[in-house]
């Protein structure tokens, strides 16, 4: 055992509620002692469940162990506790890059750099992700189609209240207009990527199983979000006069249509 680990361990033994668990856990992590580091982090989080640094530490440990999704969950909690936490933004930048979501990776890395402009590793990561994003943009096969397939033709609100998007928040089909006015499909689609990830994390961390749908009753309208397949999200929007029970029935019908169309796309 090295001197600093020994000293930090002794300090923690004297005061198990001490914040020194963060330094000790990190010291163990960088030495590759991941099991010991995880034990220290989890015990520390028992004492300090709302400490963003504690969740950031645990996230780095599980990321080192190869569980990037679990790490992303912990970084999300850290950010919910401290929205300007540089380590959590940097971690989510890494996690989103691993998933191939370059836009989200760039956003988190830029926020990480804003929170800590002196971190050279963030500067390097940002440079690498920007290069990857430029390459993706210059690939003609990567461009999104501007035409939206009429997947929901025949269903009520086919092009103004039914939207099919991919997990990265890009429109696949359908359309959405704000109260029949401006086209807000692209903007809402971008928000849905985040909603889906949060739903996944919430359900997993709370041991609720797989999430099936989310319904929100707003002041002026209702939204219903579901996942007709692993590669798509379906949003159905109706005005407030449509009861939530009917909304669920309409959503189920639209999901069936979307599922058939998606299966046809993969043949």
């Amino acid at each position: 055992m090295t001197d600093d680990v020994r000293a930090l361990s002794a300090e923690l033994a004297r005061d198990p509620g001490s914040l020194v668990f963060v330094a000790l856990g990190e010291a163990l992590r960088v030495r590759g002692r991941l099991d010991a580091a995880a034990k220290v982090a989890l015990a520390g989080l028992e004492h300090h469940p709302n400490l963003a640094d504690g969740h950031d530490l645990y996230a780095r440990i599980v990321a080192d162990a190869g569980d990037v999704e679990r790490a992303a969950d912990e970084w999300s909690i850290a950010l919910a506790l401290d929205p300007h936490h540089a380590g959590a933004h940097k971690g989510l930048g890494f996690a989103n890059f691993q998933r191939g979501d370059l836009d989200a990776a760039l956003e988190h890395l830029e926020l990480a750099l804003a929170a800590d402009p002196t971190d050279q590793s963030t500067v390097q990561a940002l440079h690498a992700v920007r290069q990857a994003a430029q390459q993706a943009a210059s690939d003609p096969g990567a461009g999104a189609s501007v035409e939206r397939p009429a997947v929901f033709a025949g269903l009520e609100g086919a092009d103004s209240g039914l939207l099919l998007v991919d997990p990265q928040g890009r429109v696949l089909a359908g359309g959405l207009r704000a109260q029949g006015g401006p086209d807000v499909a692209e903007e809402v689609a971008a928000y849905l990527a985040g909603v889906s990830q949060e739903a996944d994390r919430s359900a997993r961390l709370l041991e609720l199983g797989e999430w099936r749908w989310i319904m929100a009753e707003g002041d002026a309208g209702h939204l219903h979000l579901s996942a007709p397949s692993a590669s798509a999200l379906l949003l159905l929007v109706r005005d407030k006069s449509v009861p939530s029970g009917r909304l669920a029935i309409l959503a189920a019908r639209a999901a069936e249509v979307a599922r058939r169309w998606l299966e046809g796309q993969t043949l």
């Binding site: 959405l176 704000a178 109260q179 006015g181 807000v184 903007e187 809402v188 928000y191 849905l192 985040g194 909603v195 949060e198 739903a199 919430s202 359900a203 709370l206 041991e207 609720l208 199983g209 797989e210 999430w211 099936r212 749908w213 989310i214 319904m215 929100a216 009753e217 707003g218 002041d219 002026a220 309208g221 209702h222 939204l223 949003l235 929007v237």
Partner: peptide, 27 residues
Amino acid sequence: KRFRRASETAACGLPQFIHLQASQGSL
């Protein structure tokens, strides 16, 4: 917070009730 952004952009206003249904529970 994320659902509020989507709801407000879609002109549905501030969500007054959110229901996440999962296979083994609800939020």
